[in-house]
């Protein structure tokens, strides 16, 4: 099966960083798509569909995260995630 892989660096811009509610927003977004998404901060890589792993990342404001989506709808999930980060996770 044809699988695409898309990688993009996204900066955490909201003042409180990647805390509890943004993590849930990311998980909910990723689970809407079929692609597998991983997020890397420095040397630590986590599965973006697992809230336990995401919450352990502790990404503060200004942190640059390397997001990699692999799957048929990789491009779509990447667009959705980019919009989510830009929209401050819909929290304000």
């Amino acid at each position: 099966m044809f699988k695409r892989s898309v990688t993009q660096t996204i900066e955490v811009t909201n003042s409180t960083g990647l805390h509890a509610r943004p993590c849930l927003a990311i998980v909910n977004t990723v689970r809407r798509f079929q692609s597998e998404v991983s997020i890397r901060k420095d040397s630590e890589t986590v599965d973006a569909s697992e809230i336990l792993q995401l919450m352990s990342l502790g990404a503060a404001q200004g942190t640059k995260l390397v997001v990699t989506a692999t799957g048929r709808d990789a491009q779509k999930v990447m667009v959705a995630l980019t919009n989510l980060f830009a929209d401050h996770f819909g929290l304000g």
Partner: peptide
């Protein structure tokens, strides 16, 4: 309410583990 949703999601994830 937002944090309650997170608690519920974390709880489900912990149950799987």
């Amino acid at each position: 309410v937002g944090h309650l949703k997170v608690i519920n999601a974390v709880s489900e994830s912990l149950e799987d583990q």
